[in-house]
Amino acid sequence: MTQLVLGQVLNGAIIGAMYGIIALGITLTFGITGIVNFALGEFMMIGAYATYALAERFGWPYPVAVVPACLIAAAAGYLANKAFFRFTRNNLVNGLLVSIGLISILESAALLFWTATPLEMHFVLPGALRLGEVGLPKMKLVVFAVILAVIVLTYLGLARTWLGRAAFAYAQNPEAAMLMGVHTPRLETAVMLYSTGLAGLGGALYASLYSLEPAMGGVYVLKGMEAAILGGIGSLMGSLWGGVILGVIEGVGSIFLPTAFRDAYGLAILVAILLFRPAGLFGTE
């Protein structure tokens, strides 16, 4: 039983960290630029399939494949921003419409290229660490560590640098930021590149653990959104913990409750928490 619960906690934490990385992208993009990008899951899907293609079809070592996969996702994000998203600033409805359109186009493209058959990569890092009775798969630990590192570095990067100060200033008042000499179009592009590249990284990590399907992005963006709300929109560390908490609840819950309802009890807990903390766990307003 302990083995089962601990295993599910770890599993939940890993999946939750992936929710967290999407949540981070959503909260960064919305918080800084006022753009709603609900299609982030698709950039995760792009990153995942790019990793698969580079590693399995071209035979690149996995760590080498991850970097270009992130870049490909970011490049796709750049195009999406230039073509659509930059026109949706501070307009929730248009952001949603663009997102829904992108989701259907990108998902269909993936179906065309890769078919609906789930794809699986070879084990990147086999074996498990044994802690007493509990086995922790090494790759899952690596993935968790990478995501944790990325989110902490993002947080430090924004809290301690001039670029971060400019980003927060832009989030509070774009015009005033421009009057301080901030190159605002470049800042907006940078946020878009970073959030979609990050989603690509999430996808690349996902590909090393789970099987890929064209529709994977849709699930993750919903969970990412839940995680962002749970943690508190605008809170960077909150997005990570929101994701992990959600993932663990789903993982552990599915031991005791029917697995078919895992989405529901995640949501039930979200609603319960928002009843007491309407701004989310780490939110301030």
């Binding site: 100060r165 400019a166 927060f168 509070q172 015009e175 005033a176 930021a177 009057l179 301080m180």
Partner: peptide, 19 residues
Amino acid sequence: RQIFPRFSVLDNLLMGAYQ
């Protein structure tokens, strides 16, 4: 004024020197 309301006075001033 258009100051940055969530920044401290000091951070507002530093932001003025951004460029």
